[in-house]
Nucleic acid binder design. Structure first.
Length: 543
RNA sequence: GGGCCCGUAGCUCAGCGGCAGAGCAGGGGACUUUUAAUCCUCGUGUCCUGGGUUCGAAUCCCAGCGGGCCCUCCA
């Protein structure tokens, strides 16, 4: 956790931490890395005794450019209009498209324990006139802005270009307008049909005031203006913006030269890759934040983003791997270590801080949280697949005492996660499938004592099956004992006969969940199959 | 073309000047009732390559090679 604490130690005076986002649509899991980093920085600053304001902005005056998220009839009408002015497509009561999508990600933040002191909406600040001084300076210094774009980003705008976008008085679009003149109070603008490919302006042109919400600054200037307006001192950003000549460079130059203020401390961070590739909603399941939150609970998701240094890309490949179970295991290991319990292996420096920052509630008693009973995810994933198992009771037995309210919550949360993981991500090897169709091939490899055990067990229960897992388990031990079979071998034989694998969940409960007639039949089949295969290699080969 | 990040065990990664490490996976073993639990045990891998600095380099410097992402709203 050194990166956040080091940052906190390196600054002095009150701090304003800020980030903002355009609410254009779905949020990817990776998008949560920024907010989590921001939240951790804010927590670290406060822990270091720095007065800290945590701001999160919604750039809702940005133009609508995501055609795919509009209903077909709305595309021609809404593309290019400010997101705050586009009606909510979902029709679920939000005032606008922007409010709907911003609402979704704010909800996600809250679930992750990320609570900015204030959310601000740029449409409101423009409307209130807060941005007017910056618009005026930008227009007065238009030549300087053009020079900066040329010098820093190698972007050449025409000499008539002015750094402001008017919201067209006729069609309401902001993405299609260009300002070509400024007389000190009014700008001359054109709403061009062909300025951008994704939206078509209406052709209006004329003089108008750019103040009071009638116009917005382009992104790089708006960003720099936000720093001045809110007094931002620290603002992390993704690597995409940190590239040479990219957004950050432009905005920093504009902040210094146009608005004459030192830009905030930068803190660039890497992305989250899914399976070694950039994540994409279209290329695979689980890329959306909402989906991932279904499977990975908040504290484990925070850990995923916290644990690596921000300048390192995170490789996360949940599909068909044990990446998610391992995330739980790592969390539990940190918890155990924080609680002072012995753990296997080495611990990262500052492991207790990593654990503490992973908690949803910043005010939580980390020591008490660390000491709580947490069922191993992998074990739960197995148990939940066996019909008839009372998972809660099993867990109480494992803990050795009753679960408290919080521990029950954790258990329920993990049961839900395990179900979602098995349904969407788990490798085949994690899924338990009773082979109802046919005797698994692997049963042919069973040794003679094991086959004899299966036959004896079949005889033992043919007259009447035990009722319940406990009784089944007892019967297995009893028969194994009477045959002189090691329990290990007995259990392996059962797993091979029913699951086609050498191990499995507690056998008694597994068998109790099956039809007794099927169990007897399968036991005899497995015992006989072995007999036939004895001394006959061909059977194995053919299997 | 430019920027940033990463190349260490099968996988994920720590170590960042002083005898190559951990977790997971895998192998072996223990356990007559938490048998995918728990416990014990097993790691020589061109630390991407080639130079350089140094008594000493996985670690610092230079040059390559390979991979990833970005440079347009995006994290």
């Amino acid at each position: 956790m050194e990166w956040a604490d080091d940052l906190a130690a390196s600054v002095s005076g009150p701090q304003v931490v800020n980030d903002s986002k355009t609410p254009s649509g779905t949020v990817h899991v990776g998008s949560l890395r920024g907010p989590v980093i921001l939240d951790v920085i804010a927590r670290a600053l406060r822990a270091a005794g720095r007065e800290t304001m945590f701001l999160y902005g919604v750039d809702d005056l940005d133009p609508m450019d995501a055609q795919a998220l509009l209903t077909p009839d709305a595309v021609e009408r809404e593309m290019g209009r400010p997101l705050a002015h586009v009606p909510d497509q979902a029709g679920d009561g939000h005032a606008s498209y922007a409010r709907h999508h911003a609402g979704l990600f704010i909800e996600t933040f809250a679930r992750l324990g990320i609570h900015p002191d204030r959310y601000y909406w740029m449409s409101e600040h423009y409307a209130a006139g807060d941005m007017d001084p910056y618009i005026r300076v930008a227009l007065d210094r238009a030549a300087l802005v053009r020079e900066i774009y040329r010098r820093v980003a190698n972007v050449r705008h025409p000499d008539t270009w002015h750094p402001v976008s008017v919201i067209c008085e006729t069609c309401g679009r902001v993405g299609t307008t260009i300002v070509t003149n400024w007389d000190g109070e009014r700008v001359f603008y054109e709403c061009r049909p062909d300025l951008v490919e994704w939206a078509h302006g209406c052709g209006t042109s004329g003089w108008t005031s750019p103040f009071g919400g009638r116009a917005k600054l382009p992104w790089n200037l708006e960003w720099a203006a936000q720093w001045s307006l809110f007094g931002v001192t620290i603002e992390p950003n993704g690597k995409d913006l940190a590239t040479a000549g990219g957004s950050r460079d432009r905005s920093e130059a504009i902040a210094r030269e146009v608005f004459e203020r030192e830009p905030p401390l930068n803190f660039p961070y890497e992305f989250l890759n899914i399976g070694g590739r950039k994540m994409s909603t279209s290329k695979g399941r689980g890329a959306s934040a909402q989906q991932m939150v279904e499977v990975v609970p908040p504290e484990q998701l925070r850990l995923l983003f916290l644990r690596p240094k921000p300048n390192q890309a995170i490789e996360f490949d949940p599909d068909g791997t044990d990446a998610i179970p391992r995330l739980f295991d790592e969390f539990d290991r940190l918890a155990a270590a924080t609680a002072g319990k012995p753990v296997k292996g080495e611990l990262p420096p500052g492991f207790a801080a990593v654990f503490r920052y992973s908690l949803v509630d910043p005010a939580a008693d980390a020591a008490a949280e660390a000491a709580r009973f947490r069922p191993a995810f992998g074990h739960l994933a197995v148990l939940t697949q066996v019909p008839g198992v009372d998972v809660a009771a099993t867990m109480r037995a494992e803990k050795g005492s009753g679960l408290d309210t919080r521990e029950t919550e954790i258990l329920d949360e993990r049961i839900r996660s395990a179900g979602a993981w098995l349904a969407a991500y788990a490798p085949e090897s994690a899924r338990l499938v009773v082979r109802h169709d046919a005797l698994p091939d692997a049963a042919a490899d069973l040794g003679l004592p094991q086959r004899q055990f299966l036959a004896a067990l079949a005889d033992r229960i043919a007259g009447g099956a035990p009722s319940g897992g406990e009784a089944w388990q007892a019967a297995i031990f009893e028969v194994a004992g009477s045959m002189g079979t090691q329990p290990r071998g007995a259990f392996e034989a059962l797993y091979q006969a029913f699951l086609g694998r050498p191990n499995g969940p507690r056998a008694g409960w597994l068998l109790a969940s099956l039809e007794p007639a099927f169990v007897v039949g399968r036991l005899r089949e497995a015992a006989a199959s072995g007999t036939l295969a004895a001394g006959e290699d061909a059977t194995e080969e053919a299997g």
